[in-house]
Nucleic acid binder design. Structure first.
Lengths: 222, 222
DNA sequence: TAATGTGAAACCGTTCACAGCT
DNA sequence: AGCTGTGAACGGTTTCACATTA
């Protein structure tokens, strides 16, 4: 039985190497984002209080997160932005080029293909798949749309690391199985269904309706 | 300073009425989803073990979540699906009609307007706003796109509860402030930036790049 | 008999507070 | 003087295990 918070699961309980609290991973991602902004502004250092303020997190949490990275800030000064960015990037897996495919070029898939913001983090969309003949052969955001019927073969050629799943619910499980069979390591799932997959595939779920529901809940219980 | 997990914050620490562990809210949303599916399949009851399996959560967690709802399952039998669905719906705020506006009709905004799956949960998209003259006046997914320049006035007419923010990063803070000024209670924010807002507005962030980064992390530390 | 509901223990993650660097 | 790094206290969730009830 799996005890991880819903919306963030790995099919195999990790023998992982990290001493990192899981919520910290999400925060690192946010620090990373802000650090880039700060670098663009020409800043060279930042302290836990200021960084925390940018991300709406307490300074203590920032320090804990960064120190558990083995990162070295300088007492009395703060953290050097360049080093810190590099460290966090390494932990999060930027620096590696991740090969990513997208399956399902509906309106959401379309939006994801156009979304600039993956590349900067080391994600390279190498192909998209759909069944619609009107879409096959076209390009969106520089990515070619291939015939989903030929997906297995193409995946064997490309051997991508990750997949973004943006197909209708009723096809999601099926397509996900194909992806796993083709050796995908991780799936970003936008279909509102819990994928139950064999083996070791990591899954992160993004359920747009659920997010809106969480928002409504927090408003209702304000 | 704000201590909530990133990506899920309320601008004012709630004097909320709920005895519900926060992580439970997300799970309730998932149970809700599965319960609808089960109802469609004609099932009448389900037990904690089976429901947990559908959502990848332990039976003990399911029971805790449901009992903290005050819900009554029957020992030896399980939970009646209809009653349970109703209860969870009430807690999550389905049953109320939430009036929602969307700001920013780029490709993501477009996809969100076409997304069927909000209505069923009680969310009604009542208007969209954009600055692009080519879009203004058109309809997408049955929702009219209005001139963003007139937003404040329109919001005063419509007085929506929630807003979906799908504008470019550099406009996000600005637009969010306008929304808050217009009395919006909650914002679902797709812009990759931490909104720092005055007052009591609830914010839920969805950062697509971050999600992909979390996926990469869990793959890398498999 | 089967499955809920729930004390009590175990387990994280966060917060506090301060010693230790620079 | 200022800010990091971290032991120790704290608080909230999850897990365990079982008494309870249909």
């Amino acid at each position: 039985m799996d005890q991880r918070p819903a919306n963030e699961s790995t099919a195999e309980t990790s023998g992982g190497s990290s001493k990192l609290p899981r919520p910290a991973v999400g925060r690192l991602s946010l620090y990373f984002r802000e650090l880039h902004r700060l670098a663009d502004l020409g800043e060279s250092h930042i302290n836990s209080k200021a960084l925390g303020a940018l991300v709406d997190v307490s300074p203590a949490v920032v320090r804990r997160d960064l120190s558990s990275l083995g990162t070295i800030g300088r007492r009395g000064v703060g953290y050097p932005i360049d080093k810190l960015t590099e460290q966090i990037g390494a932990v999060l897996g930027s620096g590696v080029q991740w090969q990513v495919v997208l399956v399902g070029v509906g309106s959401l898939g379309d939006a994801l293909l156009r979304y600039r913001g993956f590349e900067r983090l080391g994600f390279r969309l190498v192909a998209a798949f759909d069944l619609d003949p009107n879409k096959i052969g076209k390009q969106i955001g520089g990515v070619s749309i291939l015939n989903a019927a030929t997906m297995t073969g193409k995946l064997a050629e490309l051997s991508p690391d990750l997949a973004i799943l943006a197909v209708p619910v009723d096809q999601a499980t099926m397509v996900a199985s194909d992806l796993v069979a083709a050796g995908i390591s991780g799936i970003l799932n936008f279909a509102p269904i819990t994928l139950r997959l064999p083996g070791k595939t990591a899954v992160v779920n993004v359920d747009l309706a659920s997010e809106l529901q969480r928002l409504a809940f927090s408003v209702q219980n304000r």
